[in-house]
Every structure is written in C-alpha cells, then in structure tokens.
C-alpha cells in the first residue's frame, strides 16, 4: 500500500482522487455563489459564507480542501516535469495524432487557474479570514461579513469580469478532459458507462462554466 503512491500510477491516482474532490467542491461553491443573484437581498449569500467559515465540519473539510488543491498542483507539476524529462530530445515535426485536444494543454490551463486561485483567495478568502477589511452587516442583531458587497464591487470592474470569465473558460478546458480522465485513472472503464461518464463530464463542465460566468455578467449588467 505504501509503495502504491511511489509509482507513477499511484501518483496519477492522487491526481484523480483530488481532482474528483475538487469537482465536488466546485459544485458547492457554485451553489453558494448563485444565491447572490437568485435573491434580492445579500442575506442568504452572506449567511452561507458565514456558515462556510464557522461550521466545525466545514473547517475540517477546508483543511482537506487546501490539502487537495496542494496535492493536485504538486503532483500535476511533478508528473509533468518527469514527462518532459522522459522525452529528451523532442521531435522536429510536432505530433498531430487524433487525440483528446484539451488533454494536451492541462499544464498550461493549470498554471492560469493557479494564478486565478491566488488572486481569488487574496480578493475574498484571505480578506474575510485575516485582514478584516470586509464591511459588516447585521441580520437579526448578529454581525456578519458583507462578502456579498465585496463580490458585487469586484464584478462592477469590466477588466475583472473579463479576467474572471476567461479563467473559467480555461477551467472548462481542464474539466473537459479531467472529468473523464479521473475515472480512467481509477480504472473505471466500461463499455456502457464510460460514454455516459464522458457525456456527464460535458454536462458538468457546461453547468459549471455557465453558472460561474453568468454571475459576474448578471452583477455587471443588472445589479
């Protein structure tokens, strides 16, 4: 068991499991974000954000989440560097075999998403957690961080909206390959179910992309 993760397949297994975990996390995140535009008040969003930062179970999950992000990024980069080394001298004519297009650019899209993640965390998460620069609102006499207003202010900046949407398109490229690829790495391949997983991957990617890009557009134009 201990030597499982020492092998290349074991490291891919880590990529797969953390990837699937992050896929679930994205859905939760989207759900909370959507509450900002589905209600007239920012109250549900702020309360949800408060719950996510104060609940003990979520706090434990948060550590796992950061761990998941770290492992996914670390092993992604580690395996990529090993793969580059494995080639040695490259080809004069680049290979143009019929392959899954997005899988060729996973490291590139990953770097863009990492940059986004750092900016995203500094903009919202770290502000709420450590810097205390978030305005406060009171619901039923209790103080809450008004993260909603922070988000709305950000999404009123055209440059930020474009950057945010572009990053989610790159994330879509990751998901289009990553979703199915995670199952393949787990060895879950089936004549009937694999095509279903591939379609589910496309549907999931579409929902995540449309959901996350609709929010800044809605805020920019209608709020």
């Amino acid at each position: 068991m201990n030597s499982l993760f020492a092998s290349s397949i074991g490291k891919k297994l880590i990529m797969s499991l953390t990837g699937l975990f992050l896929i679930v996390f994205l859905m939760v995140h989207l759900g909370i974000n959507l509450s900002l535009i589905f209600y007239d008040s920012r109250e549900p969003f702020n309360k949800a954000a408060h719950f996510m930062s104060s609940n003990v179970l979520i706090k434990i999950l948060e550590i796992i989440l950061f761990g998941g992000f770290f492992l996914h990024m670390f092993y992604g980069l580690y395996l990529q560097i090993k793969n580059w080394i494995a080639r040695g001298r490259g080809y004069y004519k680049a290979n143009y075999s019929q392959t899954s297009f997005f899988s060729k650019y996973m490291i590139h899209t990953a770097i863009i998403i990492t940059v986004f993640l750092i900016i995203h965390l500094t903009d919202f998460y770290f502000k709420a957690k450590f810097f205390g620069e978030v305005p406060e609102v009171y619901y039923d006499g209790k103080p809450y961080h008004d993260l909603g207003i922070l988000v709305i202010e950000k999404f009123k900046i055209p440059g930020f909206v474009i950057f945010y949407i572009a990053c989610f398109l790159f994330l879509a490229f990751q998901l289009l390959h990553g979703f199915w690829s995670a199952f393949q790495t787990l060895g879950l391949d089936h004549q009937v179910y694999t095509p279903v997983i591939k379609i589910l991957g496309i549907i999931y990617t579409a929902l995540i992309t449309i959901g996350f890009t609709a929010i800044p557009l809605y805020v920019y134009y209608f709020m």
Binding site: S7, S8, I9, K11, K12, L79, K82, N83, I85, A86, R87, N95, S97, Q98, T99, S100, S103, K104, M106, H177, W180, S181, Q184, T185
Partner: peptide
C-alpha cells in the same frame, strides 16, 4: 512490470489517447 516501466524512465499516462 509497472515498477520496471517507472525505473526505465518512461513518462506517466495523462489519458490523451495518442
């Protein structure tokens, strides 16, 4: 076989399908 494959310096699979 996998241990030997790793030892010989082959890369890891990213399910690209080439």
């Amino acid at each position: 076989m996998v241990a030997k494959m790793d030892e010989l310096g082959f890369g890891s699979c990213t399910n690209t399908g080439a």
